[in-house]
Amino acid sequence: MMSNEQLINTKQKMEDRLIPDHTVGNIYVENARMSARKVNVYYSDKQALDDVNLDIGSSQVIAFIGPSGCGKSTLLRCFNRMNDTIDGCRIEGEIKIDKDDVHDPAIDVVSLRARVGMVFQKPNPFPKSIYDNIAYGPRIHGLAATKVDLDNIVQYALHRAGLWAEVKDRLDKPGTGLSGGQQQRLCIARAIAVSPEVILMDEPCSALDPIATAKIEELIHELREQYTIVIVTHSMQQAARVSDRTAYFHLGKLVEVGETTQVFTNPQHELTQDYITGRFG
């Protein structure tokens, strides 16, 4: 019979053994759009990410999976510096988009976020009309010189998000009046309207029913040709369905990354294996 203390020590040792110092699998890709090197993130004194290195390939979908609190959303929010809005958050390391460091003082966070769009966990349309929701980004960034240009952008974005047919007759109605799935597609359209290079999606389907989820997944499939997409998801099936690469996070560390088919059929690391076979998480 072990004492409590011994038990904790043993558990600690197991964890130490299990979590690798270096990520299993290939973190590099050929034509990387974004890259993270030696990224550490702290919330006040709590470390949320521990020495993460990862490339995000162009025109690819990469899925971040892992149990709650593993740091996958934290890394996602590093890519467009959304962590800036959180008090007491500190980021170390280097994150690049193309050749530019996102933390470079010469890079404006505004233009970074215009290049790296984001879709959130819960659909969050503005309490404005559908049209104004989409037009908001182009307006603030000055992307449309005329009303016709703006109309075109709105129409294009709604088409791309597969929402045009459903809302074309009520563009002046509030966006909050749409169903949850429609709202989320509206948010995707809103992100597309700014013509970003990368779209970050933070569990975009967690608040939606299966049918709406299927529609979003279909949409992601269509968007991959044109945009680089990073998706955080709790659903392994979803990751398997939509992504080209998959990264598995555990306790703030990037445990394993690789081609989705490879990660799901033949995981290299014990933890990844446990997670995708449903032993925990």
């Binding site: 290049r115 075109n152 952008i153 129409q155 294009y156 088409h159 791309r160 013509s195």
Partner: peptide
């Protein structure tokens, strides 16, 4: 039927 008007990144 995607309309034109979208800008490239």
């Amino acid at each position: 039927d995607t309309p034109k008007g979208a800008l490239s990144p």
